[in-house]
């Protein structure tokens, strides 16, 4: 577990984002146990109160569940999990679109370029 925190965004949001990414890319499986707040704080070298806040927020978003005296677990709720994926995707695309828009390129050309680049990098990774 390694996160490079930036200093300007709230740490608890950066933690939540980290968990979402892990869920979206399958590193964290639905129903999987996650570290205790204390352990997380210790591993990421962050304030335990911040870890606590991140977990509380994730519980409110139904990303994780905690039963009394048990470790917290990633949700198994398909709807929530799907939303995480979608949210991250939409966010990434939004960022992409914002930066590309300044170049003022026709959308068809852009999509073609995206298609070739995306598959190419896919192949490279294989």
């Amino acid at each position: 577990m390694n996160v490079n925190f930036n200093t300007r965004d709230p740490v608890y949001l950066q933690i939540i984002r980290y968990f979402k990414e892990q869920i979206a890319n399958g590193e964290l499986a639905p129903g999987e146990e996650i570290p205790s707040r204390r352990e997380l704080a210790n591993r990421l070298k962050i304030n335990p109160n911040t870890a606590q806040r991140a977990y509380k927020e994730m519980e409110e978003q139904n990303l994780i569940h905690t039963e009394r005296n048990h470790p917290s677990k990633i949700t198994t709720d398909e709807k929530v999990l799907g939303k995480v994926r979608e949210e991250l995707l939409v966010e990434a695309v939004d960022t992409f679109v914002t930066s590309v828009r300044s170049i003022n390129i026709p959308v068809e050309e852009l999509l073609n370029l995206v298609r070739t680049k995306y598959t190419k990098s896919d192949n490279k990774e294989d």
Partner: peptide, 14 residues
Amino acid sequence: AEEAREDEGKSVVD
């Protein structure tokens, strides 16, 4: 520190 980041987007150093 966390409120400064959350409310104003500022790091402690900022």
